[in-house]
Amino acid sequence: MKTRIQELRKKYKISQEELALAVGVTRQTITSLENEKYTASLVLAYKIAKYFHLTIEEVFDFSGEEVEGI
């Protein structure tokens, strides 16, 4: 899944290590998220979005995930 994590990190000059420590995961997890190798859980997505004071949709790209609404 595409994310804006790397872009936001660079914007606020935050290292992967700092972000990882703040949201309670390892640095490798942040790397995998940035490289689109791993999709974050709902809780982790929430924590990352909250860290940047944004909503989940503003950090994670859900355009490929379609669902038929009621």
């Binding site: 995961v25 390892t26 995998s32």
Partner: peptide
Amino acid sequence: LKMLYIEERDERKQL
């Protein structure tokens, strides 16, 4: 302690 906590609870590692 915090590093150990993160190491053990990391969701990617668990997966």
